[in-house]
Nucleic acid binder design. Structure first.
Lengths: 334, 334
DNA sequence: TTGAAAGCGATACCAA
DNA sequence: TTGGTATCGCTTTCAA
């Protein structure tokens, strides 16, 4: 049998209440002498309190739920690392739900999280509009911070976002200033907030500089290498003319570059390319990828910070934060 | 307040015991009529049983712990995905512990897992030799399957490994047959099992073909891009002569290629390179990377399968399994 | 088929 | 400073 608080109490010749006190480092209510004796027995037996039992009475589990669409996209592991680091530092364990872009799995995880009584949730949803399930978090009193992606119609507690619009504005502007007039945008899925904002930034730059919006220049991918590759191949087959490519993430940019090379375009001489995310790999693609830097670690850190405050019952003076982009010029731009 | 089993019982005019029976789909002990009525109330109220409460009485949490050294290495997200997929399919939630190569964090996670009463653990340890902490799993009766990396002195329940020795044997042999006589090996950290096995495979091939072992040709990295890069730079600075490179993972191979390009070696004409893992990116590096294919998804799947059996109290006829490599020739080899 | 009550392993309140 | 005991939300055994 596993050793319980009762065993420790018996061994120490005290009550469970006293053991509980030393366990939780209560400053008062237990004499120095007793405390020492009890602590020794706890150590000797490597006694670990059952967190389930504790959770059921305190209604705190010291556990966070994290929902992500695709763990194989390197952006997310970096985010996970930041979240886990900071959660761990504060005594929290994180449970990860990888949804594979499936709303059903997302709903599933939310239910699991509620059933497991996580203390809070960090959500990067796979959909743009909230569904009944997301309200359930509120209903059950589970604080939730949205990360990276906003949602319509959701009364969220806090959000950590990135200024996608401005990011695409500056990268598009940069290409325009190089004399590019026909700039392709390989967007993410059309309905998620980040895509919408990025398209908006792209349009703003074009308008600002008096260039026309050509619908044919926008392709929609799903953040995979393959979708970036296919976007370029399609454009090529359609005979669309262009001199630069903006991709909504580095992975798709890499796919695009692969396709461009196959078509025998010279990068950056004939075609310039700018990615998005600045993942580790961006530095070592061939040629090294110019991209938008997202402060990934900072986003994760901030999300945890917000969540901790919410769980602490504090109200945030700024419900959401929008981090700013930085353009990193490497060798896929001139 | 959250709705509890008591509330449902009251609403349905039955006892908690009855509600519990329908909740757990017990085939007998509740009339068809009653079952229907109770189920309706459960649905209407979207009642979700408190898994902590259930866990405390059943001592089953339907939760698995997963320990990994580095989530930002793309090999692991692929593994995680496989594990999560299969765990989820069987009604299990997985908690991930990213240790950042720190034994302290690893110990921490094992303690957390025990305290949270996970039903089983999948462990890719950051160390080669087991320490007191790993025995604690056994002591607390938590089944554990080792994944990818073996450990000395650990009486493990099951293991899913990869035939690293043979993998390096065939890739080294391949290079030798191309006429390479001075083949560099960029190994992982010297003490972990996978490194030891890979070095052994490399040595076997050299011996087999009558080539000498030159200690200078082996460099030790830590599976990061940077360490692959540095390995080549060091060799170059040391004036070491070589015509081919074997890397212990694709990430280091990519770092190595970056360095080789800077030194202006032509790949594969002057230097051939073979990686290890066959991560998604391998296909789109420049030039596309020849590498050893590890059946990553299969390894994750198998680990879960083993763990489920162990948790079920079944004994495995084969405590461990060793999956076989396949050499994928792309364009970093001739 | 159903319900009453004990028990799981903690915490927390109230007395002593 | 301590201990006794109720309590959290379930499952499970035993009787009815």
């Amino acid at each position: 049998m596993r050793v319980t608080i009762e065993d420790i109490a018996r061994l120490a010749g005290v009550s469970k209440a006293t053991v509980s006190r030393v366990l939780n480092n209560k400053s008062e209510g237990v004499g120095a002498e007793t405390r020492k004796r009890v602590q020794k027995i706890i150590n000797d037996h490597e006694y670990k309190p059952n967190l389930l039992a504790r959770g059921i009475v305190t209604s705190k589990t010291k556990t966070l739920g994290l929902i992500l669409p695709d763990i194989t996209n390197p952006f997310f592991p970096e985010l996970i690392k930041a979240i886990e680091d900071n959660a761990h530092k504060n005594g929290y364990t994180v449970i990860i739900g990888n949804t594979d872009f499936s709303l059903e799995k997302e709903q599933n995880y939310i239910n699991t999280f509620i059933a497991n009584r996580v203390d809070g949730v960090i959500l990067t949803s796979t959909v743009d509009d909230n569904s009944a399930i997301h309200n359930k978090l509120k209903k059950y009193g589970v604080p939730c911070v949205l990360l990276d992606r906003a949602m319509k119609n959701m009364d969220y507690d806090a959000g950590v976002f990135f200024d996608n619009e401005y990011a695409l504005y500056i990268s598009c502007e940069y290409l325009i200033k190089h004399g590019n007039k026909r700039i392709v945008l390989i967007s993410g899925p059309p309905k998620i907030s980040t895509s919408i904002e990025r398209i908006e930034g792209y349009r703003m730059a074009l308008t600002q500089y008096g260039l026309e919006h050509n619908k044919n220049l926008i392709k929609y991918g799903n953040f995979t290498i393959d979708s970036g590759y296919k976007a370029i191949k399609e454009l090529h087959n359609e005979g669309v003319d262009f001199t630069a490519v903006l991709a909504a993430n580095d992975i798709m940019a890499i796919g695009a570059i692969k396709a461009l090379k196959e078509i025998r375009y010279k990068i950056p001489d004939q075609i310039e390319v700018i990615g998005f995310d600045n993942i580790d790999f961006a530095e070592i693609t061939d040629p090294p990828l110019s991209t938008i830097q997202q402060p990934t670690y900072e986003m994760g850190r901030k999300a945890v910070e917000f969540l901790l405050m919410l769980m602490d019952g504090k109200t945030l003076n700024n419900k959401h934060i929008k981090l700013q982009p930085r353009l990193i010029c490497r060798s896929t731009t001139r």
